[in-house]
Amino acid sequence: MYAQMIKSTGQGVKSLDEMEPEERAFQERIDAGGKIEPKDWMPEGYRKNLIRQIGQHAHSEIVGQLPEGNWITRAPTLERKAILLAKVQDEAGHGLYLYCAAETLGVTRDDLTRDLLSGKMKYSSIFNYPTLTWADMGAVGWLVDGAAIMNQVPLQRTSYGPYARAMVRICKEESFHQRQGFDIMMKMANGTEAQHKMAQDALNRFWFPSLMMFGPSDAESVHSAQSMAWKIKMNTNDELRQKFVDQTAPQAAYLGLTIPDDTLKLNEETGHYTFAEPDWEEFFDVLKGNGPCNTERLEARNKAWDEGRWVREGLIAHAEKKRSRKMAAE
């Protein structure tokens, strides 16, 4: 979603005067805070951008099941196991809602899935990082969900009705995700020496990748301007990143953990933290497929899809048989 990376099809943002009447009416409706619904007229660029954005968001939920799913069978207590499983299940649900929203735009879930599996469509790079200790379950909830929420809350007001409604449901269900992550971090940070060490290590590994989740700076981006005019992107990447750091830095201090950035400092005048940029070269490497787990993640999704094929075929074949038996009986 960090739509700054998303290329729109237009050549910059048109003024209302430059638009054909139907596009003008469309834009005026968005400007007035109205919602665009599936059967409404919409510019082709709006439709394509939305399919890509919602699709990538959905893929991120589905691939995002994997790094946390990695710890379900090793969760240390029955309660932690149940909470983690419920959370990863929610992510499957969120993927499902989002695919359905994308389907209102004229693609099918299977189309989108194929494009994920072939590597043609992307998912959030954060999920190409490994989860190595139990503290990573805390860090993912606290930082990764925390960053995602920054982005998702404003999207509840996005201009496309089905997307906005999916986000409302998602935000409601996600409210416990970040808290459960922070709860794990509190236990770990205040636990034994080994647990504290795991917590600090998790923060060290997830801090910069979390900052990358907002995408590179988009100050100059025409594409971003178009997405914002269409209200499918609600804030700039830099705004959201700043908000995230401002919120997270005091939380780290509360945990007694050190953010791995020597330059991090509160600017008393502005009330905002200054902080170091993540390594954008690493970001683009991961995006290109060279992250620590890109191969594993796509392999896992492909394997699940391929091995599930006979099940999907079997159940639809049974449904067809049932239908024809019923028709024969009538």
Binding site: M1, K7, K48, E103, K122, L287
Partner: peptide, 28 residues
């Protein structure tokens, strides 16, 4: 959780929509 960055979705590359697939479950 979310946050796709990146590449444009080019619908022309997608599988043809009219194609019937025996694995595709209908939408409800």
């Amino acid at each position: 959780m979310s946050s796709p960055e990146s590449s444009p979705y080019n619908e022309d590359d997608a599988s043809p929509h009219g194609e019937t697939r025996k694995t595709e479950w209908p939408l409800w």
